[in-house]
Every structure is written in structure tokens, then in C-alpha cells.
Amino acid sequence: MKRIFGIAVAALLALAGPAAAQGVIGVGTMSQGTLSYTTGSVIAQMMNERLALQARVQPNSGESTLLPLLNSGELDFAIANALEAAEAYEGLGMFAGRRLENLRVAAVLYPLRVALFARAADGISTVAELRERRVTSGFSAMGSVDTLLKAALAAGGVTLDDVRPAPTPSVAAGADQFVDGRADAFFFAVGAAKVSEVDATTPVRILAIEDSPEALARVRDIFPEGYIATAPAAPGMTGVAQPTPVLAFDNLLLTRADAPAETVRAVVEGLAAHREALIAGFPLFRGLDPDALVKQGLRVPFHDALGAR
């Protein structure tokens, strides 16, 4: 980050003047109570308290509403993951036929980890062992989640044809199907409260994927922004008895191609300069790397102000 920008924090505060003069900066998120909302709220607080910008969180019902608002200029920034952003930018999935070409990445925030979970009593520990077992899938109300599932299965060396799909509208509904005995494994975010809720009645075990170049290649064939990361055995990581390789991808701060360059620079440098304040507001910001806020390999281009394409 220092090499990319080379701007002192004092200079950034000076740059905030013109940005603030444009009025309140809208930071779009998913609905209250979501990871997206908490992430955006902490960033908006940082902008208000540390950068002398006027920012306000604007929650929305989902990415199909949120990202078009950013694209059209009704929002200035938004929180979305790398898959949601890529599908919107390229006109895929729920955005088929309506590319949002004005979207740009402002910063990579932190990794998101997802995995398949099985009953601890079943004695399986890897995704490869899910052949012929019932696995939650479809996720008709959640757009891109099925792509993530297919990538996670591929990393374990299996496909949907190798398992018995258990159709479900959402990851939460799928977890309930697992508890009810209608599925042998369910797909969810690692460390999520819902996994702990399931574990309270039906003890679970996270299923490892293969951590190899070959597995990564299979992931990238389905999900170019996906990668393999370790889920640590730590408080709050329900079902993780030992460090376990799982599917990961990035949560992003998005902006618009026409967003003022000085505002984008100020916010991105603020993320790097005030990382500890962000962590105090939301622990997942421990995954924020000040030297990797801009990275290669995303389908959505970075804002021109950041010197990356």
C-alpha cells in the first residue's frame, strides 16, 4: 500500500475536504444484522470519525438491489463479496442481461471462509467422503451460493453428480434440513452463529477440502476468485477441531468508476491507517492486510485512482 499510494495520513485529511463538500457519502450494505451491514457500518464510522468525511450506511434487501444502486450513482461505496461483484460486472447469474459496468473495486477487505459440515457422529472428515450422501444445494433464494458449493465440492474432488442434492432455498434453511435429518451435510460460512446453533443439538464437524495446486485449479475453473485457506481451531469456530483447509474468497469494498479519485484514495488509505480501529468494531477486520488492499485476479477492475487494473 505504501508503494502504491505514498500518501501521508495528514494529506489524506486535506483531501477529504472536497469529498465532503459533495454531501453525505452513501455506503450500501445488505440488511441490518448481516455481516455486510456490520462491515459497512464500521467503515462508515471510520470515515466519519477518522477521515472527516460524512458517511451514512444505507442497508438494502440484497445484492440485486444494492449493486444496481451503486452502479447508477445512488450510492458511493458498497460491501459485496468477490463472486457477487464479478457476476454483477459481467452480467452473469442473477444479473444476466444487465451488466453493471460502472462497478469498481476500492479495496479487498478480508477473507470469507465457507465449508461443508457433517454430523460429528458420522465419522467423516473430508468433502471427498460425501459421495452418495445428501448435500444441501440449489439455494434458489440466494443467487450465487450454488457456485460456491460447486467450487467447494470440486476442491474435494467431487461434483454434484457424485452426491445426492438436497434442494433448499437458503443456507439457513439448509442447516435446518440438516438438523431435521433431511440432509447429511450442509453448506455455511465458517464461524457463523447458525453453525453454533446447529451444533448445540446436532454436533458437527467441518469437512476438509484438498489443499493442492490441482484442487486450486478445479476451484478456479468454477470460481476464478476462489482460493484455499485454513480455518483455524479457535473460539467461535464451531466444528473446527484442528486447522482445516476450506474454500475462501474476498469481501470487497466497491465503488463506482466515476467516484472522485480523492475520496477513493482517502478511504482506502484510511482502511490501512486505521486497521486497529476497524478490528475493534468488527473482529473479521483482523484479516485486513494493509499491504494487500489491491490485488491481482479479480474480474472487477480497481478504481483508476488506485493505479491497478
Rank of each mutant, 00 (worst) to 15 (best):
T126H: 08
L130F: 04
G93K: 00
M94G: 05
A107L: 13
R119K: 14
D146M: 12
A120K: 14
V127S: 04
G143D: 15
L148T: 01
T147C: 03
R134G: 10
V114D: 15
G97Q: 04
S140G: 06
L116N: 04
V108P: 07
A115I: 07
A96S: 15
G97C: 01
V108K: 15
M94C: 00
G123R: 02
L130V: 01
M94V: 11
G123M: 03
E132G: 09
S137Q: 11
A141C: 04
R104Y: 03
A121Q: 04
R104A: 10
G93V: 05
V105I: 14
E132S: 08
F139M: 14
R133C: 03
S137A: 15
L92W: 03
T147H: 07
R134Y: 04
L109W: 11
V127W: 00
L148A: 01
D122C: 04
L130Q: 04
R98S: 04
A118D: 08
A115L: 09
T126I: 07
R98H: 11
F139S: 13
L116E: 08
V135Q: 06
Y110S: 11
F95D: 01
L100F: 02
A106L: 07
L100Q: 14
P111G: 14
S140E: 13
A115N: 08
S125C: 11
L130G: 04
A118V: 00
R104G: 14
V108H: 10
E101F: 02
V127H: 00
R104S: 08
V114A: 11
E101H: 05
F139N: 08
A118R: 05
S125T: 15
R104D: 13
L130W: 07
R119T: 05
E129C: 02
A128V: 00
V145L: 14
A121D: 15
F95I: 01
V127K: 03
P111H: 13
V108D: 04
G143K: 08
V105Q: 08
G143I: 09
R113K: 13
L103V: 11
R113L: 15
S125N: 09
V105E: 06
L109N: 09
L109M: 11
A121I: 00
L100Y: 05
F95C: 03
A115H: 04
